[in-house]
């Protein structure tokens, strides 16, 4: 008994190769198992059963950067740790994306001092910034959805990577709004 007998005549769909490729990438975007600080707890919360990131095809964290597509920098990044993060990013195979989760990863947060990198965009290109200290799992999921939307707009020739096209997500009392 095949699918045809169950579902009848499925017909056909016309689309573009870009859409199919991007659709595949958004729905199997595996994050790297990588946590830095308290934001990592919220990231784990987002992946656990209550918030269930597997709804978006992200149920599996890869412990190897070779198999990961998404680097969620979850927490403050010390200057001593910075070369390690850069190496992890370099080891990830293209296409790859980066989410700066939380205020510390985005801009240094409250740790405006000698020991903390003032925003991970100084060492790796960031696609989406998620504000919050720490952001709730909803905020992280919203950031991931916005990253998915960004990936869906990518061209087959490669992804654009300039600072102007980065998306900033800000958390407000009423919910999540996009600033720029």
């Amino acid at each position: 008994m095949g699918l045809e007998e169950k579902a009848g005549n499925l017909g056909f769909v016309t689309t573009t190769l870009e859409t199919v490729v991007n659709w595949g990438r958004t729905n199997a975007m595996w994050p790297l198992t990588f946590g830095l600080a308290c934001c990592a707890i919220e990231m784990m919360g987002a992946q656990a059963s209550n918030y269930d990131l597997s709804r978006f095809g992200m149920e599996i964290n890869r412990p190897s950067p070779r198999q990961a597509d998404l680097l969620i920098v979850s927490g403050r990044l010390s200057r001593k740790m910075a070369p390690v993060v850069r190496r992890l990013y370099d080891q990830m195979s293209d296409p790859k994306w980066v989410i700066a989760m939380g205020d510390c990863a985005s801009c240094g947060g409250v740790f405006n001092n000698y020991a903390i990198v003032q925003g991970v965009d100084e060492i790796i290109p960031v696609d989406v910034y998620v504000a919050g200290c720490p952001p709730r799992p909803e905020a992280l999921i919203d950031g991931i959805m916005r990253l998915h939307a960004k990936v869906m707009q990518e061209k087959i020739g490669g992804k654009p990577h300039t600072h102007d096209e980065q998306i900033v997500v800000e958390q407000k009392d009423t919910g999540l709004i996009q600033v720029t």
Partner: peptide, 10 residues
Amino acid sequence: IYAHKPFAKE
């Protein structure tokens, strides 16, 4: 500030 900030490149 962003004019002087050392943003990372690809």
